[in-house]
Design a protein around this nucleic acid. Structure first.
Lengths: 252, 252
DNA sequence: TGGGCTAGGTTCGATTTCGCACATAGCGAC
DNA sequence: GTCGCTATGTGCGAAATCGAACCTAGCCCA
């Protein structure tokens, strides 16, 4: 992905939704960070020093089991925040957060976030609503894991990623997708092959290009739409108070 | 289950953890309700008028899909609260809440809860911590759905229920368990048969008795322990401020 | 005592996914 | 170029689960 024409914490929707006064107070403490593919923001049970507001990156929340098997339970892009256990009060979580698509983000020390969260102001309700959206995503993932085919889940995963990117091509091997979905690599190869033969996607050595998004949406299970609708409902009425430099871009 | 020797909102751990002043303020508004087996506290997308604090009942949070297939995403007993979307700000959720084990609980009008939640006081951090514990449970359910056998999931389900009951027998048909786990009834029959032959449980026409809990714990997958440990970590240091009538009982 | 309903048992073939082994192919390093 | 690594393709048999059909048995109730 190209470096955006500008950089601002307001690339993240949650931060952008803050009224100017709150945004300005927080801004000096937001640290721009590179988030390379594969970086672990949190390890299971580790102590969290920062929360992350993705701007152009995508982060995957994964559970890893004792035998190494894993499964993705949610995806976070610039609509959200990584590290909700900080303000939920748990301090740590038993899951991992991995950068799934390289990009940039802003991070904030936990004490600062907690202080801001406990203030009377717009941040707390914002974060709690986002958390509820995340819960919906996790719940639907659980159901999808139970009832739907690898192919449908792959479609869901592609669409979730696409929604969080400004392009329609992503850097990701089938092996990594398999880890996230918690299935075998061969299963992903097979499903991806079918999607490619159907003309919905094109892939080659770690690059996937979506060529027919409406086609994907016809193939995906209902889980995708359920989550999207609920997230929209919960977060759509969040105004983008903060002026995002009127340079005619679309940050999402 | 026998009617407990006493009734008090403090049978619910969250309420019991409130300092006396807060507990007294809330008490008059807590309405004791019967919660019969199968009752739907919430329907998917419905408007929520109350939150529920189970005392002797157990509530199942379910996702139901368009084709009727379903899956349980979490269980709530007297350690928790049903209706977190009220204070999370979503007002509704796309899931159902069903009474899985008949009993009693206390309910509170949403406005009152929201008012209390927004106060500076002990309730908010308490509910948020509980919510994080619930998130952990949901995430682990997603992973378990992906990687573990019906038999292991049945063990997990039985242990989760047992932890929330004061007896070791539960009223539940295999058909209902199948609905909750999102598998076929025959699969549950088979798994339950094996557990019975191994002497771990005994069942008959809608009654299940656990006869060898340590045996179950040896059979269950790690998911059970992970959730239990995390829930304990998050909620164990919650003091039971409120005096629970010192009649030598154990409400959990 | 005997319907009639519901819970649970059993079977069988179809399908999906798994686990493993090994073959090919793109692409960068030297 | 070609070596070598990594990504992908493919072809098994094994196992779990599914879907459907049908049987048996406990229990309520007339």
């Amino acid at each position: 992905m190209l470096t955006p024409a500008f950089r601002s914490p307001a690339q993240n929707h949650l931060l952008a939704a803050l009224p100017a006064a709150d945004f300005e107070r927080l801004s000096p403490h937001l640290e721009l960070v590179e988030m390379p593919l594969g970086e672990a923001l949190y390890e299971s049970g580790g102590h969290l020093k920062h929360v992350y507001f993705p701007a152009t990156s995508i982060v995957s929340l994964l559970y890893v089991m004792e035998d190494g098997a894993s499964a993705e339970i949610a995806v976070v892009g610039n609509e959200g925040i990584v590290g909700i256990s900080i303000f939920m009060g748990g301090e740590t979580t038993p899951n991992r957060a991995i950068v799934q698509s390289a990009g940039e983000g802003y991070r904030l020390g936990t004490q600062l976030l907690v202080r801001e969260f406990n203030r009377v102001g717009p941040l707390r309700p914002l974060l709690l609503r986002y958390t509820q959206a995340l819960i919906t995503q996790m719940a639907q993932t659980a159901v999808c894991n139970r009832h739907h085919s690898v192919e449908q889940q792959l479609c869901r995963w592609l669409l979730l990623s696409l929604d969080r990117l400004s392009s329609n091509s992503l850097v990701m091997t089938q092996e990594l997708i398999a880890n996230m979905l918690g299935v075998r690599r061969e299963g992903v190869t097979e499903a991806a092959g079918r999607l490619q033969r159907a003309g919905l996607i094109h892939y080659s050595r770690g690059h996937i290009e979506v060529r027919d998004r409406p086609g994907l949406e016809r193939t995906v299970c209902e889980c995708y739409a359920v989550v999207k609708k609920e997230v929209d409902r919960l977060l759509s009425d969040i105004p983008r108070h903060h002026p995002v430099r009127t340079t005619g871009q679309t940050s999402d």
